Simulated assay, not measured.
Amino acid sequence: MTDTLALLDRLIGFETVSDQSNLALMDFVADHLCSLGFRVTPLPAPCGDKMGLYAEIGPQSAGGVLLSAHTDVVPVAGQDWTRPPFRLTREDGRLYGRGTTDMKGFAACMLSLAARAARADLKEPLKLVLSYDEEIGCKGIAEMRDRLAPLLAAPRVCIVGEPTQMDVATGHKGKRALAARFHGEAGHSALAPRYLNAVHLAADFLSRLRALQTELEESGARDPAFDIPFSTVHCGRFWGGTAVNIVPDAAEMDLEFRHLAADDPDALLARIDRIAQDLEATHPAAKITLHEKSAYPGLDTPTDCRAAKDVADWADTGMTKVAFGTEAGTFHGLGIPTVVCGPGSMEGQGHKRDEYIDEGQLADCDRMLNRMLADIAASPP
């Protein structure tokens, strides 16, 4: 654990909130991996102030194991932290700091493993991916995808180390986030019935979204492995108008849907688009525009496949599905059998003030990765 804790301390010290650069952290990671003999490929973001990374060691071949982590963290603004969020604090078996659970804890375990892998005689390659902008809709991995695909060379399994308390998650829902804009007619509120109120138009749209949610809950596809076993539609923000005595000519809404593997996201999007079209037909001035802000695919890995069984053996734990989204669906979409398994609890600590991870969870993760390393090495490291 000594190396893992030292690396976690360094990683927490980089303030990689999603609206800030991660270049300093990535320079540290690249230097660390290069010094160990890894073949490192930087993957710069189009914006220029962020970077992803692919690294490998061992035979330059297909097979092997791919480990993946994101480097960005959620903001601390507005949270009443009682410990410094960007300095690791160790108290009573807990390690406090932003990102300890989500998910620099796993990244530290990855980088600690890298040193042990460098001393091993690997019969299969060890492959690592670090990304950016996961917390704002898995945007980074989407930008990296086409450059990553030819580098990965078909690993036999990918482990995305999001916090699952070291259970092996074989599935999560996919997501699409949308911005809706509603256009009506401005006018004096004393004459309100003469004009199309954009807020009212948006409210009608929201009412029909709620009816769609009820339908999905009552008669849509179901997967009992999830806490919420059906696809969901959710409005997160809704605003419009400038003054109470002016009929608003514009309103806006941010919404999302999270879908089971059995529900086609394009079909759900088409249904939402049809709701907009039907409302536009109710008034000559009505106009509704939908814009996709972010999207990521779901994950549905068979529990009886070799990849899931191997990771369950290494982790010595059971299988589950998780409510939150990850980058795992992107790797699965590249034809790589993928699971989610990492230290910490998203429900218990993720995105909260005084985020922490139990030291025992990091120790369990180190043990899992050691068993994996023994599997791909010609002899134990």
Rank of each mutant, 00 (worst) to 15 (best):
I12P: 02
R98A: 06
D310T: 01
P381I: 11
S18I: 08
T164F: 12
L334P: 04
H188C: 11
D313G: 14
A179L: 03
V65A: 12
Q277Y: 03
A186Q: 13
W239L: 15
M319K: 12
E135W: 00
D204K: 14
T164E: 06
H172R: 03
S112P: 11
V65I: 14
M51E: 14
I357Y: 00
T16D: 06
K309S: 07
Y132T: 05
R39W: 15
R306S: 09
A114W: 01
D3M: 10
R210F: 05
K293Q: 12
S35A: 08
Y132N: 01
P42I: 14
F324V: 07
H259A: 10
P42H: 09
G161E: 03
D249E: 13
I12S: 02
D204C: 15
P297S: 13
P265K: 07
T317N: 14
G99E: 07
A186F: 06
T317H: 04
A312N: 01
I272K: 01
R222N: 09
E359A: 09
M166G: 15
G97F: 11
T170P: 14
A153T: 06
E134T: 07
A77W: 03
V311F: 00
T101W: 06
N370G: 10
S61Q: 10
A117Y: 09
P224L: 12
Y96W: 10
L148W: 08
R87A: 12
S68P: 01
P125A: 04
L196M: 05
D72K: 03
A154P: 04
C34S: 15
V29P: 00
P337V: 07
G13I: 02
L209K: 00
D366M: 02
N22D: 07
R194G: 15
P284A: 14
K321N: 04
D263K: 07
M253P: 01
L362Y: 02
R208A: 09
K139R: 13
Q349N: 13
P302L: 05
E280V: 08
G171T: 03
E15W: 15
A202F: 01
Q361D: 06
S18E: 07
H332D: 06
L113W: 02
D9F: 08
W239E: 15
R90V: 10
D375H: 10
G325F: 05
A55G: 03
C138M: 11
E327V: 02
P84C: 12
R116N: 13
L128G: 00
L148N: 00
F226Y: 11
L279T: 02
D264W: 07
P59N: 14
R371Q: 04
C109N: 09
R274N: 11
A192M: 05
M1P: 05
T320R: 10
P229M: 07
D227K: 08
R353S: 09
I272Q: 00
L369A: 08
V74C: 08
P46C: 11
A77Q: 13
M1I: 08
V244E: 10
P75A: 14
F38Q: 02
F14S: 13
Y54F: 13
C34I: 09
I12H: 04
L255P: 01
G140M: 03
A149C: 09
L88H: 03
A202D: 14
D133L: 04
P75M: 08
